[in-house]
Amino acid sequence: MTGADPILSVKNLSIRFRTGDGMVYAVNDVSFDMHAGQRLAIVGESGSGKSQIALSILGLLARNAEVEGAALWKGRDLLAMPAAEINKIRAREIAMIFQDPMSALNPYMTIERQLSEVVELHEGMSRSQGRARALEVMDAVKIPDARARLRAYPHEFSGGMRQRIVIAMALMCRPALILADEPTTALDVTVQAQIMELLAEVQQAMGTAIVLITHDLGVVAGFCEDTLVLYGGRVMETAPTRALFRAPGHPYTRGLLRAVPNINDPSATLAAIPGSPPNQTHPPRACPFAPRCEDAVTACFETLPMLEPHAGTASRRACLRPVEALT
């Protein structure tokens, strides 16, 4: 993507955790740009650091984390901001949708209080203004009979409805960017389809940019125009979604795509990726995927490949032996 300046620019982000077993290098040298209204997917398996990236942007990392790099929001570095400053950006400009809608809501507060609290705190609205905005947003996320349900508590809603409330909460201040961390993982497929449709609608109506963090390539294919693939805390590949699915450049992306059973194309055996995910207790010195990569050569175990643009396309990949070089 070119043209306008990015609204969010993450530069060389690294996140480490001090744990009882030593350092864990969760995110290593990750950079990406977000433009207004863009839908970006961050795809990775558990432990690849995808959620930590989102948490670091909003200053929500655990206390034992050490962060390096920068996340520039309108020219200001979110990572270096004092808590009081970043609090003004949270919800107002950047909002987050969490994976588990039950634990993201306070069980002791009515829906009305939880929703209007956001605007009362961040925009100084009165209670009645807050209620009006809450109603408006509940209609936008299609909660039936919103007025009657304002007084309800989270446990009175089903999983899908709760996730709608969490989305409503994220929309309260009409943020420019929403970080959606596995928003449908806890939901059933038919409900997942509802929620993804809703997110797409809201995104189009409000022009919000969305970072969708997920492990589900199926969800990505239907929703995001750009995709970033993480493995072992490093960016393996970033590309427009269509190009990535049609012609994956990184062997990991290719392996991931082959390992997903496609309901329309059941082949005899799934092409599993051998081995297990990397141990991240050391800073990466070589490609983290090399031990599981069928195309790895000696150099892959010795050098750290940089993310480089693929000639003539919008794709970039960090690989010494990208897929098209092999065929």
């Binding site: 089903s158 999983g159 899908g160 409805m161 059933d188 497929v189 038919t190 409900v191 997942q192 389809a193 509802q194 993804m196 449709e197 589900d216 390539l217 199926g218 969800v219 990505v220 294919a221 239907g222 979604t241 269509r242 699915f245 049609r246 795509l257 997903v260 496609n262 309901i263 329309n264």
Partner: peptide, 25 residues
């Protein structure tokens, strides 16, 4: 039918237009 149409397919060109079910269980 609804269940199958809601399955996300890992193919950006396969916009199957999921038949979105109303309501919850």
């Amino acid at each position: 039918k609804a269940l199958l149409s809601a399955v996300p397919v890992p193919d950006p060109d396969a916009r199957l237009s999921p038949q979105v079910l109303k309501g919850d269980l």
